[in-house]
Design a protein around this nucleic acid. Structure first.
Length: 426
RNA sequence: GUGGGUAUAGCUCAGGUGGUUAGAGCACCAGAUUGUGGCUCUGGGGGCCGUCGGUUCAAGUCCGAUUAUCCACCCCA
C-alpha cells in the first residue's frame, strides 16, 4: 500500500455524519437573513493580493504573516481570501452597485484562508457567515446588523454569549487620540513587554488589552478612546446604544475593544463566549465608512460583520443544541432471490419518482443482512421482493417501528399506499 | 512565530521498572434449523505500535530528531 496523504494542516473534512448540523446552521442563517432582508452575494475564492494590502491594511497581522499568497502562471500575485469584507467591497465598487438603490444589504457564507497555527477554534481554512450593508450612516444600521447576529444566536438556541460594544472613532478624532496614547506610553516604555513596545508604533490600541500584568498596570490611567470621541462619533455611539436598549439587547461597553483589521471606523463589536476555549470570538464586526473610497469607489458609509461557523458549531456542541441524528430513508427494498434485480430496479425507480426516499441493497447481502442494513439506515419500512411476491404481484410492507405488515401491490402506487399506513409515515 | 501535552485497530483507550505470536470496548462482517431488523450469544477480518535514527543480546516501552495532532501565547471568526 502506498503512503497515505492526509488533509493539509489546519483544514478539516466535513463528513456525512456532520453535514446535518452544518445544514441546520445554514438554514438558520438563510432564515434570519431573509427576515432582515439581506440578499446573498457570492465572490471568488482568490483575489489580487493588492486588494487585501489596500483593504485590510498592510500593517495588520493578517496581511503581514497570515496570507496564502502565490504567483499564478500569468505572473499575477494572487491571494486566497483571508476575510470576506474586502471582496464584497471590491465587487460593490467594480459593479458600481452604489449607482443602484441603497442601502445594499448582502450576506455570504464562504471559506476564508489564513496561515495560522491551528488551535481550538482556529483553523487555516474556516467558514464564515458575514453580512455587509452599504449606504447608511445612520446608527440604526449598526443596531440592525447587531440585532441580526443576535437573532441568529437565539434562533440556534445558544446562551451565554456576550455582546461587546465600542467605538474606535473616525479620522476626525482618532489620530489625536493615538498621539495622546503614544505620548502616554512613551513615558512608560520600560514597563511594557517587548511585544507591546513593538505594538506601540503600529497599533497602540492593542497595548490597552495586553494580558501581561505589567502592561495592564502601565495601561491603568491611559487615555481612553471613548473619552476622546468627537461630537459626531459620540452621538453616533449614543444612538446605537439607544436602539440596542430599545431592542432589550444586552451589551457591555468595552473601551479596549480593538479590531485587527485596519478598515474599521466608529462602531466596533464582538460576540464572545467562554465555553469554546481561548478563541472566544464568535462574531466580530463594525463600521468601515472609508473603505469603499479607499478601494476606488465613491465615499459610501458601510458596515458589517463576520461570524465563524466552526466556532458557532463548537458552541452548539458544548451547549447541546445540535440537531438529532438525520432521519433515515422512507423505504428499503430487500431483494430475496436471483433474477429479481431488474424488477427491483424498476420498482425502486418508480418509488423514487413518487418522491419517496428509497434504497436497496447494493452489497449483495443476504436477506437477513439486508434487514439489518435497513434497520441501521433508519428505514421506516421494508418491502421484501422475492419469487413469491413476483408470482402473486403483491407483497407485505413491513413497518419497522411496529413490526406490523401491510399488504400491497408491487407497483409504485401500491407500495406508496401501503407506506402511508405505516406509523412512522408523516 | 514562541511554549507545553500527546502519538498503539475505523473510533475511545489498556499495554508497572525493556523480554515469546500486541489487547479490550465500540464499530464492521458472518453465523445461532433453510425468506424478515433492533436484544442476546458465538466466531471473524482487520495494527510498518506516526516516521527516521540511536542505546541494548533484546525497544510499543529508553534517548534524539522529524512529522502530525491537541492546548495556550500571539492574532482572529
Amino acid at each position: 500500500m502506498s503512503e497515505r496523504i492526509i488533509a493539509p494542516r489546519g483544514t478539516h473534512d466535513i463528513l456525512p455524519d456532520e453535514t446535518d448540523r452544518w445544514q441546520k446552521l445554514e438554514d438558520a442563517i438563510r432564515a434570519v437573513t431573509r427576515a432582515f432582508a439581506f440578499r446573498e452575494i457570492r465572490f471568488p475564492t482568490f483575489e489580487h493580493t493588492e486588494l487585501f494590502l489596500r483593504g485590510v491594511g498592510e500593517t495588520t497581522d493578517v496581511v503581514q504573516k497570515e496570507m496564502y499568497t502565490f504567483e499564478d502562471k500569468g505572473g499575477r500575485s494572487i491571494t486566497l481570501r483571508p476575510e470576506g469584507t474586502a471582496s464584497v467591497v471590491r465587487a460593490f465598487v467594480e459593479h458600481a452597485l452604489h449607482a443602484g438603490a441603497l442601502p445594499l444589504k448582502v450576506y455570504y457564507i464562504a471559506p476564508n484562508f489564513r496561515y495560522e497555527k491551528p488551535q481550538a477554534g482556529r483553523l487555516r481554512e474556516h467558514h464564515q457567515f458575514g453580512v455587509e450593508c452599504f449606504g447608511p450612516s445612520l446608527p440604526s444600521a449598526d443596531a440592525e446588523v447587531i440585532a441580526l447576529e443576535d437573532t441568529l444566536l437565539k434562533t440556534l438556541g445558544l446562551r451565554d454569549i456576550t455582546l461587546h460594544l465600542g467605538s474606535i472613532g473616525c479620522p476626525a478624532c482618532r489620530p489625536a487620540y493615538l498621539d495622546a496614547l503614544r505620548a502616554y506610553f512613551a513615558t512608560r516604555l520600560d514597563a511594557l513587554c517587548p511585544t507591546c513596545r513593538d505594538r506601540l508604533a503600529r497599533n497602540p490600541l492593542r497595548v490597552l488589552d495586553c494580558k501581561n500584568a505589567a502592561c495592564a498596570e502601565a495601561a491603568r490611567g491611559a487615555p481612553v478612546m471613548l473619552d476622546a470621541l468627537c461630537g459626531d462619533c459620540e452621538s453616533h455611539l449614543h444612538a446605537v446604544r439607544g436602539e440596542l436598549g430599545a431592542l432589550s439587547l444586552p451589551y457591555v461597553i468595552d473601551p479596549t475593544l480593538v479590531r485587527g483589521l485596519d478598515y474599521y471606523t466608529r462602531t466596533v463589536f464582538e460576540f464572545t463566549t467562554d465555553c469554546i476555549g481561548a478563541q472566544s470570538t464568535v462574531c466580530g464586526g463594525g463600521r468601515y465608512d472609508n473603505l469603499v473610497a479607499q478601494l476606488g469607489g465613491p465615499p459610501t458609509p458601510a458596515l458589517g460583520f463576520g461570524s465563524g461557523l466552526e466556532r458557532l458549531l463548537l458552541v452548539m456542541e458544548t451547549q447541546g443544541v445540535l440537531p438529532p441524528p438525520p432521519a433515515g430513508c422512507d423505504l428499503f427494498l430487500a431483494v430475496a432471490g436471483d433474477g429479481l434485480t431488474l424488477l427491483a430496479a424498476e420498482l425502486l425507480n418508480g418509488l423514487r419518482r413518487l418522491g419517496l426516499s428509497a434504497e436497496r441493497d447494493l452489497m449483495g447481502r443476504s436477506l437477513k443482512a439486508q434487514m439489518k442494513a435497513a434497520n441501521r439506515l433508519g428505514a421506516r419500512a421494508v418491502l421484501v421482493l422475492g419469487d413469491d411476491e413476483r408470482a402473486r404481484g403483491a407483497g407485505l410492507l413491513k413497518d419497522m417501528a411496529t413490526g406490523e405488515t401491510h399488504p400491497c401491490a408491487l407497483t409504485p402506487d401500491g407500495v406508496r399506499e401501503a407506506f402511508s399506513l405505516c406509523s412512522a409515515a408523516l
